[in-house]
Computed example of a mutant assay.
Amino acid sequence: MSDRCTVVILPGDGIGPEVTAEAVAVLALLSDRFGLDLVFDEQRFGGAAIDGDGEPLPPATLAACRAADAILLGAVGGPEWDGAKERPEQGLLKLRTELGLFANLRPARIIPGLEIFSPLRPEIATGADVLVVRELTGGIYFGEKTLGDDAASDLCSYSRAEVERIAHVAFRAAQKRRGKLTSVDKANVLATSKLWRRTVEDVARGYPDVALDHLYVDAAAMALVTHPTRFDVILTENMFGDILSDEMSVIAGSIGLMASASTGSGGPALFEPIHGSAPDIAGRDIANPAGTMASAALLLDHLGHGAAATLLDRAIEAALVEGCRTGDLGGTTGCAAFGARVCAIIDEQISATYRREKVQISA
């Protein structure tokens, strides 16, 4: 990787352009302060691309994404494309396939000082810190589909190789966290889950330092709201992961806080908040950009800029704890104002560090 890093920006639809604007602003700030030499390349994607180019993933956008070091996405979709030949979401599924982004990582934790925003009692929610590793390019979302007037079907299929590669991602993540992995399936009913469980157990033999257990998906859904601290890393298939990670985001207080990363075996990774395009609040400067900014922190860490990523994460949390909160968290701060406050905190922290270092050198 060269010193210069190209980040493709896909604002998308609805609140996507608003929240990505704040994430790009903080990335530009950190690039300047840390000398990261980030270059931003904005491309049309989703519904905006359907309107402008006739398809949700235009060839020029795909080519730019292939050539990038990382991709930051806002959100796609909206009612104006209901009934269209192609929907915005099809562009996202195609992008994942074209770039081989088979692993979706969705972290969620209760931020100390914000326990009050969880719908769970503080004694249940406090200390929850979970990473969902979701298989992203297989399963029922990508299987053959039939639709008639009286019957329909969606094929769910997985190969051993698909399960093995996502399992390795999850086990390696658990090694860097607290050393526990919970594999979620429905092996008492589904053939794909039976294969999933057998394969995960085989992969586990190569990771003796990680404790593995299994839960059926319905039991896992219940445990997330009754005992979320029992989990460290959750490994699961595409649809189960989609549902469980959305449930987990609410436990943390708001879906607007949650980030995600989609990675593969090589090439650029994709970073995006897990929320949708929220067309009902688009253009009103009330969306929560924290999830997109947290996704930018994951992007920085992926590119090898760990110090900048940590600083950004801490600035987001500091802004929230001091009371700078958008409407989803009961506050009155606007989207742009939240982004500006995070940038200000970063500059304050950098200045404080510089002053401390200067004093130490003088001494």
Rank of each mutant, 00 (worst) to 15 (best):
E86R: 14
A340Y: 00
L303F: 03
F117D: 03
F117M: 02
A23Q: 06
D285P: 08
E42V: 04
A296E: 06
G148R: 10
D32W: 11
N238S: 07
I350H: 09
G78Q: 13
S153A: 12
A170D: 02
R87W: 05
D313I: 02
R172I: 06
E89P: 05
R134G: 07
R178E: 11
L72H: 13
T292K: 01
H168G: 01
F40Y: 08
A309K: 03
D149Y: 06
T137W: 08
E22T: 12
A221K: 06
A221Q: 09
L190A: 07
F171L: 05
R109P: 00
P119Q: 04
L10T: 07
G306Y: 09
E135Q: 14
S260V: 00
F171I: 03
F271C: 11
E162N: 04
A167E: 07
L190V: 06
F338W: 00
E18K: 07
A352M: 02
F45A: 00
G35K: 09
A84N: 10
A173R: 11
H275T: 05
A352L: 04
R230Q: 14
G327H: 14
P58Y: 05
G54A: 15
V321L: 06
E115R: 12
Y141T: 07
C65N: 06
P56C: 08
E322S: 15
G206V: 01
E272S: 10
A296W: 09
R198T: 10
T332L: 14
L105G: 02
P208C: 03
R198A: 14
G139Q: 10
A28V: 00
S118N: 10
A223Y: 13
H305V: 05
D232M: 12
F271T: 06
C335F: 02
I251W: 05
I281L: 12
I116T: 09
T97F: 00
V217K: 04
G306C: 10
T20L: 14
G52S: 14
N238Q: 06
P228T: 07
T263H: 04
L105N: 07
A308G: 04
F102C: 04
L147V: 13
R33E: 15
L131M: 13
L212Q: 00
D242Y: 14
A64M: 09
G139K: 09
T20V: 15
V7R: 01
Q175F: 00
A21G: 09
Y216E: 02
R87G: 13
V132H: 10
A294E: 03
A187S: 15
K176M: 11
E348W: 03
D41R: 15
T137G: 09
